[in-house]
Design a protein around this nucleic acid. Structure first.
Lengths: 202, 202
DNA sequence: TTGTAATTATACATACTGTATGATTAATAT
DNA sequence: ATATTAATCATACAGTATGTATAATTACAA
């Protein structure tokens, strides 16, 4: 089991690359199992064999994009036991980098997720994991700055979740705004979100 | 030309109601021209006659929802020449009411819009009109509070546009948060957005 | 060498979109 | 009252999509 796995990996990668390219075309109706197969120079049946269904293929594509967008960095953000506010800033930066890494494709995948429950399930799970991350940070934060009342905690978490979402990033990035600016706008607002509930943390 | 227009109006309303109901079903794949026609007790051909295409039907559905969501109120917000900050608050409330008026359907329509350019075009036009509204308010605001530098104006407009978007509302409303709370969270952040660029306006 | 995983070929059932052609019903105009 | 026209419907067709079934083929692995 070696050469074989490599071959399979290459086939899957070729398919996922083709799928991503077709996902970005203006005319999304051009995205079909048949078209992806043709572009990847693979039989349509191979797609079903490897990914089960269209939803399965798109799920795998999201994973693919997450890997390419360096989402592993997220683990490090939590490992370093630094200032919770710094953690929050790093957290925002990691996600902004991810969202920016393949904006068009992610936008389409999110659109599909809100329509097809099969695809939506995977994204929902991701969102819950994201929420857990936010919660962990806020928890640490409220230990250092106890002024954050527990009644406000839920609001703060939801607000940060919203501010670090793809949709927020996408709206702020617009057609040309540079990413560091977007990150600092988001950081500003997250800072405000945790700040207005208690004392100013800086 | 009277009785006839009434009949057509009734037919269209019945179709749009059926379309909205099917749009809300978990399994969105059940949404098809055929299914809508069946549910509205109308021939499939009538749908094409009345709405041209699937995209046309969904466009009309968005209009339908906008009417039901009392979006006409928006005009009044601008007519009253009151304090720009009050205008902003009213503006936020009108949109929150609209987003809340048919959250599930709007979520699906926005999902479809990010996939199908035919549908997306209509929503993009709406967003541009929404942006114009924000711009007008910010313009009025910066006349009263000149501390808002023109360099920041673009950022402020984009931020408000983001904060008043459906996606922001949807994220903050979550599964159960009461709407007045959502509105005041958004107002808080919009206030911060216009405030941090210049002097505090209140 | 034998078994097995991966890919492919062909075919089929089912469903949807959009269009064409023409019939039918009912309101409107003259 | 009759002719006209708008709205609806029936049938049919072309094109394309998904997903599954069956079986053949290729190439790696035990």
């Amino acid at each position: 089991m070696e050469r074989r796995e490599v071959m399979v990996g290459k086939t899957r990668a070729r398919v996922l690359t083709a799928a991503r390219e077709l996902l970005l075309l203006k005319d999304f109706s051009g995205f079909s199992m048949e078209a992806v197969a043709r572009r990847a120079d693979v039989s349509r049946l191979t797609l079903y064999y490897q990914f089960k269904s269209k939803a399965g293929l798109l799920e795998a594509l999201y994973d693919h994009i997450a890997r390419r967008g360096k989402m592993e960095q997220l683990a490090d953000v939590f490992r370093h036991g630094s200032d919770p506010l710094a953690t929050l800033h790093d957290y925002i930066r990691v996600f902004a980098n991810f969202w920016a890494s393949d904006r068009g494709a992610i936008r389409r995948l999110h659109g599909l997720a809100s329509i097809d429950p099969d695809i939506g399930k995977g994204l929902q799970a991701r969102n819950e994991r994201r929420r857990q991350g936010v919660q962990t940070i806020v928890e640490r934060y409220s230990r250092v700055y106890p002024a954050l009342s527990s009644a406000r905690k839920a609001i703060v978490i939801d607000t940060i979740q919203m501010l670090t979402s793809f949709e927020t990033f996408d709206a702020l990035a617009g057609s040309s705004r540079n990413m560091d600016d977007v990150v600092s706008i988001i950081q500003e607002h997250v800072h405000h979100a945790v700040g207005y509930a208690g004392k100013a943390p800086l």
